[in-house]
Amino acid sequence: MGNLLKVLTCTDLEQGPNFFLDFENAQATDAERETWEKVDAVLRQSDGILSELQNYQGAITEIRQAISNSSDQDLQERAWNAVLPLVLRLKCYYEFSLRLADALRSLLGALTSPPHTPTQHLEREQALAKQFAEILHFTLRFDELKMSNPAIQNDFSYYRRTLSRNKMKNSHPGAENEVNNEMANRMSLFYAEATPMLKTLSDVTSKFVSENKTLPIENTTDCLSTMAGVCKVMLETPEYRSRFTSEHTASFCLRVMVGVIILYDHVHPVGAFARTSKIDMKGCIKVLKDQPPNSVEGLLNALRYTTKHLNDETTSKQIKSMLQ
């Protein structure tokens, strides 16, 4: 399939873009190399983070024993020693979110710059489009794992309570230097979000649009809507889907499609669900609902609860009904 986007004949323009994008084998060209290497340095850490998060056990037993026996110093020490390394891991994930935001900012700059259109950018910089997709895939997977693991919030809350009461400062003087109050406050805001990575990406995309005042907003929203259309067509067309060589590519496309819809909905003035939206929301939702229910419920919930405009008056009753 090579490095180029395969642009196939579209018989009905209202159906949106009819593309095949090689998410599996795209390689960076010389023109993409500088941005690609910068983003790749960040993405190389993503699989390890997901693996750690998937195996995150928490310190619920130690915390419960310490709280139930507040006068037992040994149990307090045991809980603290169990929680501290976990909090340091959570700090790493938070700091990774900042690097991921910078990576996305670089990709948005490359994929929206004039004079090329979003489609032309996807044709020319397919490896960067693949990295954009990988960021979205990681983001939704991270948030799914975070939402299903209450131990993360529980561990961090216990750490903050214990640190603020000065219980462990004398015996562990280096602890506050690792995650001091300022860092703890920033981490607290991050983990308080139901979908912290998605919130980070939504914020950085909105900020990208507001800071680049000479760049038409359509450059960004058309890039997002084109990506959504690409994924939808690839998923619903047997001819295209048969080109996937990995069993994981379909779920990858589903997450990417939902991710760009959410970003579009946060950036576009009227959102993704309005009749004037360039995203075929009915078609995208149908593609999701055509998958095994257990595999997409988290993605449907992401559309229900992390979008901005679903409950607007401009959203059709049919779309609202499809997402109920």
Rank of each mutant, 00 (worst) to 15 (best):
A127F: 00
M1S: 14
P118G: 02
L13C: 05
Q126P: 15
P196W: 10
F244V: 15
V233H: 09
R255K: 15
N177Y: 11
A133V: 05
I217F: 08
F20C: 09
K282H: 08
V42D: 06
L128I: 10
L100A: 02
K169H: 00
M1C: 12
C284K: 07
F19I: 11
K232V: 08
E218K: 14
L136A: 06
L215K: 08
L88F: 04
F19V: 08
L108R: 01
R275Q: 14
N18V: 02
T249V: 11
E32P: 03
L43P: 06
A228V: 10
Y264F: 15
I279Y: 05
A250G: 13
F244D: 04
N177E: 12
H266V: 06
N25H: 15
A59N: 13
E77H: 04
S188E: 10
Q57A: 14
D74R: 08
A66D: 09
E24Y: 05
L13R: 06
V270D: 03
C231S: 14
P115F: 10
A127H: 01
K6N: 11
E37W: 00
E236Q: 14
F23P: 01
A66P: 00
L263Y: 03
H121C: 00
Q65G: 01
K308P: 00
K278W: 05
L108V: 15
Q76P: 03
Q324I: 04
T117C: 08
R64H: 11
R255N: 01
T139C: 15
E62A: 14
A194T: 09
L107E: 03
V179I: 12
Q15N: 10
E182A: 12
N18H: 13
G2H: 11
A110W: 03
L90N: 01
T11D: 08
R33K: 15
P118H: 02
G229V: 08
H172A: 14
T221W: 11
Q318C: 05
V296L: 13
T226A: 07
P293V: 11
M227Y: 04
R275T: 15
P17N: 13
T61E: 15
E313F: 06
R33D: 08
A110S: 13
E297Q: 12
F142D: 03
G109K: 12
T237G: 03
F138I: 06
T314H: 07
C223S: 01
Y191G: 08
M183S: 05
E125A: 10
L299G: 08
T306G: 04
I60C: 05
T306A: 10
H248M: 10
M183V: 14
N25D: 15
L303M: 07
L107G: 04
V256M: 06
L100K: 01
K207S: 14
S251K: 11
